[in-house]
Design a protein around this nucleic acid. Structure first.
Lengths: 217, 217
DNA sequence: ACAAAAGTGTTTTATTTACACCCATGA
DNA sequence: TCATGGGTGTAAATAAAACACTTTTGT
């Protein structure tokens, strides 16, 4: 998934079934690999994407007739690529805005919706933004990424503060040159951590402050 | 999973591999069923559990050698049974406290941990409590269930208020008789909804109040 | 009357959103 | 010096946790 608007990488099927429709990249699980290794391999081999910043399981899709012919059970993944990475793509492969998908093969549209939902949720309560952003960025660039992914305009001020309070951001000391129109140069930041973790431990029904009164932990 | 303490239903393997160790119920996916139908069928047929209040996918476990012999890819589920339901169990099958598991077969202990984590999280931001509780209950009974599942003592006062504010609870009008020691009779409640939904839309980075300033929804 | 359990009122604390205002730069 | 972003200070809003206190029952 990528930036400016949130995008998915799809390839256009040449053959039946569902010729000409757009498909999520993937393939068969090999005998000696687990599903995550497998999806990474497929992405590298088939669409030449090797710079995934984050990968996680979404769900298993297993309706008996989800695909014509032999029965196929698929494990769907959410895989993210930073906005500054632009892998060279094969001819039949293209990025598509998530909010404006072409006709998709099989149940792939519902898989994409599920991925979008997962990403949106995690932007709120984890540091998953690191997976969308370049190594260094200004707050307003980051704001753009969050806005694109979430589908509504995020306030740069508040984004700053939420991420800062959680200790996710770190100034690099550098500043970015202003555009031709002028304006104060923006400070550059980076994410402190480059792997996903939950940063907003669920706000509700949290353990009591003081003594642990109750049962086993 | 069940109540007083949170428990998992396990059966003891008679045969190798991993004879005598305890196993999560499950089995092979049939040709004409999806994974959720399949796990419900397995639970009904093999351990006679038919009253699941909630079922959801957890994750796929696919390490090539997670099970000796032929390669097995498993889709793990979280399945909940209300605390008042006590299904008759086969002889080799028993409930075990999640915090004190016997030696388990294969990677089943990590599956159970994952399930516990999922349940604990969802107790905070969804109405999933309905799946643990009987049709009608007092707040203090519900407090007991939440405490057992979460592993720490939850305040009845605050649990009340959080669930009430969200509109999840509904008084039945009935009251429960006090115990032998006296005390004010407790009002009975029920959950308004009996299927899971997210009730605490993530608090952070939510859309602006007023105009929708930004991009596509 | 008193103990026990339930339930309500109120204060405190945490955290975010909203908004006004100040800062640094280019033309 | 003014337009254009960038950044900070501060107030308002929200929601939950903590705790004191009242209510209703059995003995």
């Amino acid at each position: 998934m990528r930036a400016d608007s949130l995008q998915v990488l799809l390839w256009q099927r040449a053959l039946e079934p569902h010729a000409h429709r757009w498909s999520l990249p993937g393939g068969r699980l090999g005998a000696t690999e687990d599903v995550e290794t497998s999806i990474k391999r497929q992405l590298a081999e088939k669409v030449d994407v090797r710079q995934l910043s984050h990968v996680e399981q979404l769900a298993v899709f297993s309706a008996p007739r989800r695909v014509p012919g032999e029965r196929v059970v698929a494990t769907a993944f959410l895989g993210l690529v930073p906005s500054d990475v632009d892998p060279g793509l094969p001819a039949d492969t293209r990025w598509h805005p998530v909010d404006d998908l072409p006709p998709t093969a099989f149940d792939h549209d519902s898989i994409v919706l599920r991925a979008r939902h997962r990403l949106r949720s995690k932007l709120s309560y984890t540091n998953i933004g690191f997976a969308l952003a370049p190594p260094e960025f200004t707050i307003s660039a980051l704001r753009g990424l969050y806005s694109a992914a979430l589908g509504y305009r995020v306030s740069a001020t508040n984004l700053q503060r939420v991420l800062a309070r959680r200790g996710l951001l770190e100034p690099t000391g550098q500043t970015a040159a202003p555009g031709r129109a002028g304006g104060r140069p923006a400070a550059q930041f980076r994410f402190v951590e480059a792997s996903m973790s939950v940063t907003d431990p669920f706000a509700v029904l949290r353990p009591p402050n003081q003594a642990r009164t109750g049962g086993p932990s």
